[in-house]
Write a protein that binds this DNA or RNA. Sequence first.
DNA 1: CACCCCTATTGCAACGTTGCATGCAACATC
DNA 2: GATGTTGCATGCAACGTTGCAATAGGGGTG
Lengths: 351, 351
Amino acid sequence: MRSSLKDVAARAGVSVRTVSNVVNGSASVSEKTRVRVQQALDELGYRPNLAARSLRAGRTGLIGLVIPEIHSPYFGELAGLLVEAAQRRSWTVIIDQTHGRADEERRLLKGTHAPIVDGLIISPWALDASELSKEAGSTPMVLLGERDPRQVADHVAVDNVLAADEATRHLVETGRRRIAAIGPQPELRNGTAEQRLTGYRQALRRAGLTPDPVLEVPVPTLHRTAGARAMEELLDRGGPAPDAVFAFSDELALGIMRTARDRGVRVPEDLAVVGFDDIEDGRFSNPSLTTVSPDKAQIAERALQCLADRVYSPGGGLKGTVPPQRITVPHRLVVRESSRPAEGGSRGAGS
Amino acid sequence: MRSSLKDVAARAGVSVRTVSNVVNGSASVSEKTRVRVQQALDELGYRPNLAARSLRAGRTGLIGLVIPEIHSPYFGELAGLLVEAAQRRSWTVIIDQTHGRADEERRLLKGTHAPIVDGLIISPWALDASELSKEAGSTPMVLLGERDPRQVADHVAVDNVLAADEATRHLVETGRRRIAAIGPQPELRNGTAEQRLTGYRQALRRAGLTPDPVLEVPVPTLHRTAGARAMEELLDRGGPAPDAVFAFSDELALGIMRTARDRGVRVPEDLAVVGFDDIEDGRFSNPSLTTVSPDKAQIAERALQCLADRVYSPGGGLKGTVPPQRITVPHRLVVRESSRPAEGGSRGAGS
DNA sequence: CACCCCTATTGCAACGTTGCATGCAACATC
DNA sequence: GATGTTGCATGCAACGTTGCAATAGGGGTG
């Protein structure tokens, strides 16, 4: 059985309240008493009962992380970083998966599943900002990667338009002309794909190229299979083949390269590929993948900082006095084999 | 402010206790009362306060999942499945990462970080079974992928010896003779790598081949980089090159294939590769990866079942009356491009 | 020597929930 | 009609913690 403050108090010969004071340092305690109590604490291996503490204090030390899928490489890496950043603040993270489904997102926003979190970090997928604000309770909330025009909550993201622009420009600068974009998701209310499409078109126009609707291939998800299928579709459309693809996620890009290989299209000689997210697989894929690398550690850190500001400041609740923050984290383009200029292709394909 | 049982009781004109009964269905309530209370519950949007409930009941509905890394593909997929299986039982999962470090494993076993979980599912890495039992508190515990000779807790795993044997046999049967094993981890107390090595040697001997220590390459981790480095080391050792590799994880295998490509070694023509875990990357890698596929969904389901048996049965505690279970889940060998016989290599390399 | 202030310590109450025991009515049984 | 039985509803207490207010002692000051 775990020992409580009462047990420790009995052993040290003091009151329960004094033990509590020693544990929390919340009031002045004489050196002599502190030492005796501390010894009793150690001997009994006292651990505070979180349930009782949070019942009293109204805080649980738990925060919810709502993401589409844990096992997706991008969200997996992000979740790992968040868990660690939370640990540094003595917070514990509860992870919930939505699978990109609107009803799941609604359910979790209402706190159905975890009625106990102090705050939420959510990566919205199916819901747009206005619906988010409607469904949200009074729990402090941070949005990841959502444009959020109404500023309903704090949000942390890279500059998607700029990043997509840079990725596309890189393809243009290495001599590509028929550059496809795989990844628009017209069915989702989340604005991320839209922003990347904007950046892509913007870069094309600046280079004097006209965006071609045939080269913009929508996908149902950002998974590898979706990328593979979209690439098949693109090749089967006939007409001049693309000489480059900007994929809205690394997973899509990996699926695209898979199809390229199956169809005998060489990467990067016949087709340059750029992804987005900088997941670990891309560093070891064959060929290795050029990608936009968001600073994930900083995303995690800043998101938690936002939450901390709200949870611990007096007027910090979602409807409180602290105005919603809008934080842009840095990114950079990492050039690897999948988009290297064609002439240096001696190491380009495995033959 | 969130409403409590008291608020609901006041609104429905009944006692607090009756509302509690309606919520939990724990005692008989007349149809008329139930309807009235239910309406009040809905109107106020009542959500039980987990802190209070668990303070009273001594249960939190939280279970801890202790794994080396969330962002590793294998554990990511497993974590996702566990979270879902837990949800079906109205449990919430808290994930903790150990990074394979012994001190982290010890810390989490003692419940330092999450003093509130009803049970633990742990994938031990650095600690062996005897140390696990020493450090463990009284929290019910399920071990994943650990041999556990002393039967200190329930454990769920595939038959690693058999699986490694089958993987190696497959390489032998497709004509390979110098088969390397990359993945032994002599520094870790976890027995998994050891079992896979046993299965590997066993299959070699049955085929009349003598295990060659030069072909057994230890690694510090199971990551891609470690696989890449181990392969470099193996190739640099001189002597006849291996014509196949059995990697103890898919991640290692992907790193190995990366090095093969960098060194101009063709997979599968010059080198067949088999991995372990069946992570998604392997299905889309180039070439796609032959692997041992453990039934991950079943691992998740059975692990939770074990925990449920202990948490909810009277004598179920770790030191209780229920004897430790030892559950073996099925696996199968999935043959893909990386080990296809050399003669059918028209789709084998990207040239 | 009375007074006050400051430090160290304490007791009480409350957070929201559920286990246990009890109350109360209606109904069946003898 | 008295007694037992059943179905339903309630009140009290307790889980472990902390906020608040109060108390006891010790030393300094007027």
